[in-house]
Design a protein around this nucleic acid. Structure first.
Length: 259
DNA sequence: CCAGACGTTGTT
DNA sequence: GTCTGG
DNA sequence: CCAGACGTTGTT
DNA sequence: GTCTGG
């Protein structure tokens, strides 16, 4: 899953060096320490038009352009926080966006919950170099027929989990992470559908990621959670007992985990 | 042909 | 808007 | 994932 | 028991 994530722009020079974003655009990004998908916050995304990358703030939760009423749009934006990468070119809600409206979702880390003995332990998953990384996304625009307002929205693509995240929460789905080279190709509208499928089928090496346990919090309290310390390391000594006996946690994966 | 769907995966 | 199911 | 619902009738 | 909504 990916329903909660954060954006911290520090240590993100690599994005500038790789020409995904300009130094000026990077400076415009505001830190968000906790975005709850169901709050549909406006978050920074990068899209490409006329051979240039644009930084936009779009609302998380894709509303397909064909929606007629506000209540219909509400239902869609709640279920379309994520889109399964395997089927974006087939699903009516995503087909149009997948072909012509792809974007990169900037993210410094996201939140997962490990179930240990029936208790939930929150983890923050980020890059070992603490940089900002990019997810594959799609966007759409929807016109509210009552107010006339145009709403721009996006969804984060998901794929099968890699070993680190799969062993951590056993939910089988994680965001599609892109390397910088693929990221440029991904948002280029000229890139072929088969190339997009090839790119989104790749999976990040788990060695690049780290997962650290953090203090418990109530995900519903969006405002209260939006503080930097939400992703600070918090130790749960009892966690080692679960991980030690979990056959999915080999030594290499365990070295990427902090708990 | 028309009516109805159109989608993902989750916490204190 | 466009596909699916009846 | 958990909480809450879970249904019917009638007319040109 | 099983689907729906959040």
């Amino acid at each position: 899953m990916c329903f909660f994530y954060s954006v911290k722009k520090e240590k993100s020079e690599e994005l500038v060096i790789n020409n995904l974003i300009t130094q000026h655009q990077l400076s415009l990004i505001e830190d968000v320490y906790f975005a709850n998908g169901f709050s549909h916050l406006k978050m920074p995304v990068l899209l490409r038009e006329n051979n240039e990358n644009y930084l936009k703030y779009y609302s998380w939760g894709l509303i397909p352009g064909f929606c007629k009423t506000e209540s219909e749009a509400e239902r869609f934006r709640n279920m379309n926080l994520n889109a399964r990468s395997e089927t974006i070119f087939e699903k009516k809600s995503f087909e149009n966006a997948a072909k012509k409206m792809r974007c990169l979702v900037l993210c410094s880390g996201f939140f997962e919950f490990y179930d240990g003995g029936g208790k939930k332990y929150p983890f923050f998953i980020s890059l070992k170099n603490n940089g900002l990384f990019v997810f594959a996304g799609i966007w759409d625009s929807w016109i509210n027929r009552v107010s006339g307002e145009t709403v721009h929205t996006f969804s984060i693509l998901t794929q099968e989990t890699n070993s680190l995240i799969g062993a951590l929460h056993k939910k089988h789905r994680m965001p599609v992470f892109l390397n910088f080279d693929d990221a440029q190709k991904y948002i280029n509208p000229e890139t072929s559908q088969s190339k997009i499928i090839e790119i989104t089928n790749k999976r990040i090496e788990f060695e690049k990621l780290k997962a650290q346990s953090i203090a418990r919090f109530n995900p519903k309290m969006s405002e209260q959670n939006n503080v930097e310390k939400i992703s600070a390391f918090y130790s749960y000594p009892e966690l080692s007992q679960y991980f030690r006996y979990d056959k999915d946690f080999n030594d290499e994966i365990r070295s990427s985990l902090l708990y």
